[in-house]
Design a protein around this nucleic acid. Structure first.
Lengths: 110, 110
DNA sequence: ATCGTGTATCGTCGATTAGCGATGATGTTG
DNA sequence: CAACATCATCGCTAATCGACGATACACGAT
């Protein structure tokens, strides 16, 4: 019984989410995609954040690996958009780490 | 004038918070301290997480640098406790990055 | 087929990180 | 005083990271 600690598996999942946002450029990209809910091309994001194209592509890959953003090929340009599930499920993770009891214990929507 | 992007300063502050929780051991420590709202000694935390004492001390330093946890010397043992401000202010950061409009624009409690 | 555009990937650099044992600093207790 | 307990700090290693330019790939248009 006495589970004094968050189980390692959940801790690792949450840590991977936080690590995906552990860089200011990725925070800007995520916030940009989250506010503008429509898909954006890499070129648009590059123009917005002002770092090199290869670097932005790298950051988008990291954000996509944890499924914060979703990729959708559109002809030549690839489009990235925020994963709507994360809009609620990521702040919930922050709540859990801060000791807030999670409302529905059955879920893992992401 | 159309600020399409979260300003770099805020992005860096949020990224530093997320980076502090970008490790599963630190997630466990933070969640442990957040649930048990009372101060804990390093030895107690070491016993709970099961990694080396020097490693736990290192993680606590990282958590203290962003003021997620507060230090309080108590005789021989040093006591660590969660920063109560972060209980609300960190989930709020997660909301902001996920595009939620921040309620009170006057802020920065941490 | 050839060009041009838009992205992803590669290779590399310097910097940072998690982890550990060993050592050092500081305060408590006999 | 001397022994002890508690914790921080010091190397050290292996791994990861952010950033960039250069290159490769995929596709629409000519």
């Amino acid at each position: 019984m006495s589970e004094v600690l968050l189980d390692r598996e959940a801790a690792q999942r949450y840590a991977s989410w936080f690590r995906a946002l552990a860089d200011p450029t990725r925070v800007q990209i995520a916030e940009l995609l989250a506010r503008r809910r429509e898909p954006m091309s890499v070129g648009q994001i590059v123009a917005a954040v002002g770092t090199a194209q290869s670097t932005v592509s790298h950051h988008l890959k990291i954000l996509a690996e944890v499924r914060f953003v979703l990729v959708e090929p559109d002809g030549n340009a690839n489009l990235y958009r925020i994963n709507e599930n994360c809009l609620t499920c990521f702040p919930t993770a922050a709540d859990v780490v801060m000791g807030r009891p999670v409302a529905a214990p059955g879920e893992v929507p992401c």
